[in-house]
Structure formats: structure tokens, C-alpha cells
């Protein structure tokens, strides 16, 4: 896993998910979608940090 690419990939996913057309697709229940994906994104950040942290420590 190459670190800069991983973060840029995650960033782009977030940008896409929090903008049109996804907001339009989920317009029926927009608050639920926004808060759910927000939590998913934070979880992904947490997991990526753990994985990369372990790699850095050589675990």
C-alpha cells in the first residue's frame, strides 16, 4: 500500500460521495445518507491509519 496514493484515493471518494450526483441519488433521505457516509468515512480513516501505523512499526 503506497501511502500518498491511498489518502488521495480516499479523499477523491469523499469528494465524490459528498457532491452531486450522489446527493441527488440519495435525495429521498439526504440527512441519513450524509451522516451515515460521514461515519463510514471516519471509520475508513481510522482503519487506514491503523494499517499504515502497523506497517510503519513493522508489525
Amino acid at each position: 500500500m503506497k501511502r500518498p496514493e491511498v489518502w488521495i484515493f480516499l479523499f477523491i471518494i469523499g469528494i465524490l460521495a459528498f457532491n452531486w450526483p450522489f446527493l441527488d441519488i440519495f435525495s429521498i433521505s439526504l440527512p441519513e445518507y450524509l451522516f451515515s457516509f460521514w461515519l463510514v468515512f471516519i471509520t475508513l480513516l481510522f482503519i487506514f491509519i491503523r494499517v499504515i501505523g502497523k506497517k510503519e512499526r513493522g508489525v
Binding site: W7, L10, L34, L45
Partner: peptide, 20 residues
């Protein structure tokens, strides 16, 4: 409405680039 969320979603997205 929901536009207030952008002020917090933006930093969340930016946080993903902090490592770099």
C-alpha cells in the same frame, strides 16, 4: 437546511490528506 454540514464535511475530507 443541510448546507451547514459543508462547514464540517470539508475539514473531514481535508483530514484525509493531512498525512501527506
Amino acid at each position: 437546511g443541510l448546507s451547514f454540514l459543508t462547514i464540517y464535511l470539508g475539514p473531514t475530507l481535508m483530514a484525509s490528506l493531512w498525512w501527506v
